[in-house]
């Protein structure tokens, strides 16, 4: 979408792809073109803002998930060590068994 001036008159047009080629399509001219360009810019701004909000929320989700991974890993490692200290060992990464002797 673009506002261009032809012979001093505003013209609003958009680029469309047809049959693998990009061509220009006329949308409107005069006051309508200016209004359409303003609305279009506002829409783009809103979409960019929304994308930014979504990205920020995704980043926050990722951070929290990363933190939770760390906590879960730490708790399991602690349990592993407590069991080892209590005389158990993990048989082939599966069942926990009491050490003999």
């Amino acid at each position: 979408m673009a506002l261009v001036y032809r012979n001093g008159r505003p013209r609003f047009q958009r680029s469309v792809r047809r049959g693998g080629r990009v061509t220009t399509e006329y949308v409107g001219s005069g006051d309508f073109a200016i209004l359409k360009a303003l609305l279009d810019a506002e829409d783009r701004e809103e979409r960019a803002e929304q994308r930014e909000q979504e990205r920020a929320e995704r980043d926050r989700l990722d951070d929290l998930e990363h933190e939770l991974d760390g906590l879960a890993e730490q708790a399991r490692a602690l349990a592993h060590e407590a069991l080892t200290t209590a005389g158990y060992h993990q048989h082939h990464r599966g069942e926990w068994r009491k050490r003999r002797g």
Binding site: L68, D69, A72, A75, R76, A79, A82, L83, Y88, W96
Partner: peptide
């Protein structure tokens, strides 16, 4: 999230079963 919860619960069950 499901895998993480199950892994943690499994460890908890082991700790309880073996009665640390």
């Amino acid at each position: 999230a499901h895998r993480r919860l199950l892994a943690t619960l499994r460890t908890l069950a082991q700790v309880r079963k073996l009665g640390v």
